[in-house]
Lab assay of single mutants.
Amino acid sequence: NITNLCPFDEVFNATRFASVYAWNRKRISNCVADYSVLYNLAPFFTFKCYGVSPTKLNDLCFTNVYADSFVIRGDEVRQIAPGQTGNIADYNYKLPDDFTGCVIAWNSNKLDSKVSGNYNYLYRLFRKSNLKPFERDISTEIYQAGNKPCNGVAGFNCYFPLRSYSFRPTYGVGHQPYRVVVLSFELLHAPATVCGPKKST
């Protein structure tokens, strides 16, 4: 009989979030998941669920729940959905087409922007091929755009693959930082360890 609440607040209220290319994953298990708490945590810009209804979450049980978190800019949030393409979905964080879970995003301009520009958040701009779903690539190998090998040196047709967002508070919403948490629900042929409040007794 599990009584402890799932530590969603640790994920959502973390002081620092990860850069999207090096997104963070927390496995959540053996706890009571009260998803209604999430609705009250922040004024969400996005709370979209796929393959599951957000209002039914509190009635369900899962084997595992994974919470992935990272920062992107406002106009990239739409890429965090099944079947999307674009720089983020292709080279940084890719959801599977049959994704079961929820994408939660909110504006973090007050936390993640600086007047002089916050350069701490990076994204991958160049990659030889698209990522597979939930693949994480943290390599910093020089990207070869031409025929000549780069031998690890940046220059003509040889690019450092990561680029930094420079978040400034005066930017338009599309270029402001957004914190994203992706909850993916895993149903294996194994005992369910993460249940809503109704199912945990």
Rank of each mutant, 00 (worst) to 15 (best):
L5N: 04
N1G: 06
T55F: 08
Y171F: 05
T193E: 10
K110S: 06
A22M: 02
T3R: 08
V65L: 05
A154F: 13
N120V: 14
R27I: 09
R163Y: 13
V71I: 14
N24K: 00
A145E: 06
L187S: 08
A192L: 07
N87W: 12
P54F: 03
F126C: 07
L188V: 01
K148N: 06
K128A: 07
F44G: 08
D9V: 09
S116R: 15
A33C: 11
S164D: 15
D90E: 12
N64D: 09
L188R: 01
A192D: 04
F47C: 05
S200Q: 01
S166F: 15
L38F: 06
V153N: 08
F12I: 12
P169H: 15
Y39T: 07
K48T: 07
P197N: 08
N1P: 05
G174S: 07
G117Q: 15
A42I: 11
P7A: 12
N4G: 10
R163I: 11
E10M: 14
P197F: 00
Y66I: 00
D97Q: 10
N130V: 12
N24R: 02
W106Y: 14
L122R: 06
A145Q: 07
R163G: 05
S200F: 06
K128L: 13
F160D: 10
S129Q: 01
K199H: 03
F62A: 09
P149E: 08
R16A: 02
Y21H: 14
R78D: 10
P169Q: 15
F126K: 11
V37L: 08
N147A: 08
Y178M: 13
E141N: 05
G146T: 08
E135Q: 02
L122M: 01
F126M: 01
K110T: 05
N1A: 14
I28L: 03
T170K: 15
T193H: 06
K56E: 09
L187R: 00
F17W: 10
N151G: 04
T140L: 10
L125N: 08
K132M: 02
N24D: 05
T170R: 15
P54G: 13
N151K: 01
N120W: 14
N58G: 09
N118Q: 15
T193S: 07
S200E: 02
T85H: 00
V153H: 06
A192Q: 09
Y39M: 05
S129K: 04
L125C: 02
K48D: 13
V173S: 04
G152T: 11
Y178I: 14
T170S: 14
N64V: 01
H189A: 03
K114D: 15
K198F: 03
F45V: 00
T140R: 14
T193G: 04
G155D: 05
D75C: 10
F45Y: 02
S36K: 12
T140G: 11
N118P: 15
H189D: 06
L41T: 12
V173Y: 09
T100H: 05
S53E: 02
S116W: 15
F62V: 13
Y119M: 07
K56T: 12
K148H: 00
A33S: 11
T46N: 09
P197I: 02
V153M: 00
N118R: 15
L60V: 05
V52L: 13
P149V: 08
L5R: 06
I138N: 00
G146D: 12
N87H: 12
N87A: 10
N130P: 07
Y119S: 08
H189P: 01
T55C: 10
N87Y: 09
S53M: 00
S200H: 08
I2G: 11
F44D: 06
I138L: 00
K110G: 08
L187F: 10
P149G: 09
F156H: 11
T170A: 15
D9I: 08
Q144A: 10
K132S: 07
G152D: 13
V194Y: 06
K128S: 04
T63D: 02
G155A: 09
T201D: 01
T55S: 10
V173G: 12
L122F: 01
T201I: 05
V37A: 02
V32S: 09
T3V: 13
V11L: 10
D97E: 09
A190G: 13
N30G: 03
N4S: 05
K56A: 12
D75Q: 14
V37W: 02
A154I: 05
Y178H: 03
I2S: 06
L125H: 07
N130L: 11
L41C: 03
L5H: 06
Y119I: 15
G117K: 15
T100F: 04
S166V: 14
F44K: 03
F126L: 04
T193P: 02
I138G: 15
A42S: 08
V173P: 00
Y119E: 11
F45S: 02
H189N: 05
K132Q: 04
G196N: 02
Y171M: 06
Y119K: 00
Y123K: 14
R163N: 12
L125I: 01
A22C: 13
V194F: 07
A81Q: 14
S36N: 03
L111K: 11
S200D: 04
L60F: 06
N58M: 13
Q144T: 13
F134G: 00
S166N: 13
T85R: 06
N130G: 11
P7V: 01
A154L: 00
N130E: 05
T46Q: 04
R136Q: 13
P197V: 00
V194K: 05
V37R: 02
K148R: 08
A145M: 11
N151F: 11
R16L: 10
F156Y: 01
G174H: 02
A145I: 09
L188I: 05
N4F: 14
A22E: 02
L188D: 07
D34N: 12
N109C: 15
R78H: 00
K114C: 15
P7E: 01
T201G: 13
R78Y: 07
L187M: 03
N151V: 13
T100L: 09
A105T: 10
L60Y: 02
P197W: 04
L188S: 06
T15V: 07
Y35M: 06
R27C: 04
D9T: 11
G152N: 04
S164M: 14
K148Q: 03
K110I: 14
A145K: 06
D97M: 05
N1V: 12
K56Q: 09
V173K: 00
D97L: 11
G196C: 10
K132E: 00
L188P: 01
A22Q: 07
E135G: 14
A33V: 10
N4T: 07
R163H: 07
F45D: 01
L41I: 04
K110R: 09
A190R: 08
I80V: 12
I2C: 04
L188A: 10
K26T: 09
G155N: 12
S116M: 15
H189E: 07
Y123S: 14
D90A: 09
P149F: 09
P7S: 02
T100M: 11
R16T: 04
L41S: 06
N87V: 00
L111T: 15
N109W: 15
P169N: 15
T201K: 00
S116G: 04
F45A: 02
S53L: 12
S29E: 11
